Simulated assay, not measured.
Amino acid sequence: MQIAGRNFLVTGAASGMGLATAERLLAAGANVTLVDQNPTLSQTVEGLGEKALAFTGNVSSESDMRTAVDLAARGGELHGVVHCAGVADLDRLLDDDGHPASLDRYRQVLDINLVGTFNVMRLAAAIMRKNLPQGVDGERGVIINVSSICAYEGTVGTCGYAASKGGVIAMTLPAARELGDYGIRVMSVAPGTFGTPMLADKVADRVQASAQATPFPRRLGQVEDFALLAEQIIVNVMFNGEDIRLDGGLRLRY
């Protein structure tokens, strides 16, 4: 799919991978609607130019995301979604005193990371299926969701997070098979340890250990690395129904 002149929705776009992706798509000539719960989003979008729109909302809210996809579908068509919104919560099954983890926190992580992904995907697909087919393959749209390498090698304290991201991966192929009938592709990307605001309040020594354990390059992933891959997935029609690890060869340790 070409990017210039097309309409995209990017969630989790106030910072990190979402913002970097929105900036890359805008630089390529796309119209981009940025979505985030963070109230700073409007200020961020002010400096991105007239092709950028902001919407403050919750990805797990049906009414919020209906409004967001309608806003993104300028001229009635929505061509792509890059769904980066999510939370990274660490919560052991038992704390140091043997008390069980909070069930409410577990539900909250699944609601944002998994239910939110399903919510955005279903609402976006409902609009995309009405697009005019483009190119020799008749493509109508592309959806990129964010999973995590924690879904493959979850570490201690990540039961909720790993479960939510594993669910994102599990949805990728069946969604691609279903939506392929409409010319819509579905992909997911599993980032390794990235230097994003989401990790800013996590255990610093574990984050740096992950960077040093990466075979190459021996550093944290950068948001530009993700944005580049998102662009490559969008323009290459053969990317479909797959989860791509973006981790420099990192395998998380216990």
Score class of each variant (00 low, 15 high):
A4G: 00
F8G: 00
S15D: 14
M17G: 08
G18D: 00
L19S: 07
A20R: 10
A20Y: 08
A22P: 13
L25T: 06
T33R: 07
D36W: 02
T40V: 12
T40H: 07
L41G: 09
Q43Y: 06
V45T: 09
E50M: 06
E50P: 13
A52E: 07
A52I: 01
L53E: 13
A54S: 09
F55R: 12
N58W: 08
N58I: 05
N58Q: 11
E62H: 08
D64C: 11
D64R: 09
A68V: 05
D70H: 11
A73Q: 07
A73M: 05
A73V: 05
E77T: 14
G80M: 05
C84V: 13
A85C: 01
L93S: 06
L93E: 05
L93G: 08
D95W: 11
D97K: 15
G98Q: 02
H99N: 13
P100M: 03
S102A: 06
L103A: 12
Y106D: 04
Y106W: 13
L110N: 11
I112H: 13
N113C: 09
V115E: 08
F118C: 09
F118A: 14
M121L: 15
L123V: 09
A125Q: 02
G135M: 04
G138I: 01
E139M: 10
G141M: 00
I143C: 03
S148P: 01
S148W: 03
C150V: 13
E153R: 12
G154I: 05
T155P: 00
C159A: 15
C159V: 15
Y161I: 02
A163V: 05
K165W: 02
K165P: 02
G166W: 06
A170H: 00
A176S: 06
A176K: 02
D181T: 14
G183W: 08
I184M: 11
V186I: 01
M187S: 03
V189Q: 00
V189M: 01
V189K: 01
P191C: 00
T196W: 00
L199Y: 07
K202V: 03
D205A: 01
S210T: 07
Q212A: 13
A213C: 02
T214S: 01
T214C: 03
T214M: 00
P215Y: 03
V223T: 14
F226Y: 10
L229E: 06
E231W: 04
Q232D: 12
I234T: 04
V235L: 04
M238D: 13
M238L: 14
E242R: 12
D243M: 15
I244V: 08
L246M: 08
G249A: 00
G249P: 04
G249F: 01
L250D: 03
